[in-house]
Each structure stands twice: as C-alpha cells, then as structure tokens.
C-alpha cells in the first residue's frame, strides 16, 4: 500500500520535473529563435518561401470558414433580433463578434490545425531524416535557416489571415442579411460604421491575433524541433501542436478579453 502511494508520488514528481524542464527548453529555444531572426535580413527569400507555405496555402480554408461563419452569425442574429424589431442592428452584432472574437480565435484554431501541424511535421521529419544534424555538421545553424523563417512567417501570417477571415465573414453576413433576408444595405453598413471603434474593436482583435500567431508558431516549431525522431514521436508531436495550440488560444483569449474589454 505504502509502495503504491510512494510510486504515485514519485511518478507525479517525475512528470512535474519533465514538464518544467520541457518548458525551460521551450524558452531557451525561443531565445535562440529570436537570435536567429537576424539571419532573415540577409536572406529574405527564406521568409518569402515560408510566407507562401504557411500563409498563402492556409488562405482557402480561412476564406471558406470565414464566409460560412459570417453567414451563420447573420442568420442567428436575425432570429434573435427580429423579435424585438431590432434587426437593423444585425450588422453590429456580426461585425463586432467577428472583429473581437471569432476572427482571431477561429483563424488561430484553423491555423494551428492546418499550418501549425504542417510546420511540426515538416521540422520533425527533417530531424528524423537527419537534415537538421546535417546542417549543423555543414556549419549552418538550423535554427537560423529552418526554424526562424517558419516562426516569423507564422507570426506575420496570423494577423493577416485573421483580417481576411473577418472581412470575408462580414461579406458573408452582408449576403445573408441584405440579399437573403432583405434588410436595407445602407442600414447594414451605417450601423456597423457607427458602432465599430478603430482601436477598441479592430485594434484589440489584431493584438489578439498577433499573440495567437506568436504562441501557435512557437508551439509548432518547438514541438517539431523537440520531437522524438521516430514515426510515433512525430505523430505525437503533431497532435501536441494542435492540442496545446488550441488550448493556449482559448485560455489566452479569455485572459486578453478580460484585460482589453473588462471595465
């Protein structure tokens, strides 16, 4: 009985130590990545290539998701508001939800699933096939050449994708509200324009997406770089990117919202 209890306590201790040491490694790794960012100045081509694979190739899923989320939002808002005769305020509800919450959060979740997992898998596979070791032995720092461009591309892409998501979402809302439900187009735009603040809504949404981009890219590149270089380890690392990334987004969203909009 005592043995079992001791085993449990030891297991807990070991697990905690492993988690803390991993967190430490992730932070040291982040500092190395920051140091490696200077390499981008002399080799902008590396960044542009990654912007394409991380950002542009995620565009389609963001546009389609944004369109449908905007359309659904408009429908739901209409059903809720029409009872009070307040359907003219529909656009405010759609635009504010998109800019403040849905744009940054859903984009980040999709980004973690699409681009984050791809980044982890790619870096992990490079590690498993000794490409990263090979670079080190060629006196080339893999953090500077492989990791830093991908990290920076993730950070730059995320706010842009969130902006596109919100813009397409608003267009989706417009399609449903004006073309499908027959609301007045002028009222749709003027209400939205009157109620949306540049910094309070748009700016805060952008800050959120920047933070999400930073965290998801960090998790994705670290998981790839730190993975056990076997097919099983790679699979686990990819899963961890999506799970940790998504959870981090949702927790951070709460914290940021409380800080930004709390009175």
């Amino acid at each position: 009985m005592v043995d079992i209890l001791l085993d449990r306590i030891q297991g807990l201790g070991r697990g905690t130590l492993a988690a803390v040491s991993r967190l430490g490694r992730a932070n040291v790794f982040l500092l190395e990545v920051f140091a490696g960012l200077s390499g981008m100045l002399t080799r902008p081509g590396l960044l542009i290539k990654q912007l394409f694979s991380v950002g542009v190739q995620t565009l389609i899923i963001i546009v389609v998701a944004g369109l449908f989320v905007g359309m659904v939002m408009a429908l739901q808002a209409y059903y809720a508001l029409v009872d009070f005769g307040a359907e003219d305020s529909l656009s405010v509800m759609v635009v504010l939800s998109l800019l403040r919450e849905l744009g940054p959060v859903i984009t980040a979740l999709l980004f973690a699933g699409r681009a984050g997992s791809a980044l982890t898998a790619e870096i992990g596979l490079m590690k498993a096939t000794e490409q990263l070791s090979g670079m080190e032995m060629m006196a080339v720092n893999p953090i500077e050449r492989v990791i830093a461009p991908r990290f920076l591309a993730g950070m730059i892409s995320m706010p842009l994708l969130a902006a596109i998501f919100s813009a397409v979402g608003v267009m989706g809302g417009y399609l449903v509200a004006v073309e499908l439900l027959g609301l007045d187009a002028g009222a749709f735009w003027s209400q939205a324009q009157a109620k949306v603040e540049l910094f309070e809504d748009l700016g805060n949404g952008m800050i959120k997406s920047l933070v999400f981009g930073f965290v998801v890219s960090w998790i994705a590149v670290f998981e790839g770089y730190d993975c056990i270089p076997t097919s099983e380890g790679l699979g686990q690392a990819t899963t961890r990117t999506v799970v940790y990334g998504s959870l981090a987004i949702l927790v951070l969203d709460f914290v940021l919202t409380a800080l930004m909009f709390g009175k």
Partner: peptide, 8 residues
C-alpha cells in the same frame, strides 16, 4: 549520414 541527410 547514414540516410544521406539531403535537404529534400
């Protein structure tokens, strides 16, 4: 390297 470690 054993695998060649070429950049794919």
């Amino acid at each position: 390297f054993q695998s060649g470690a070429l950049l794919t």
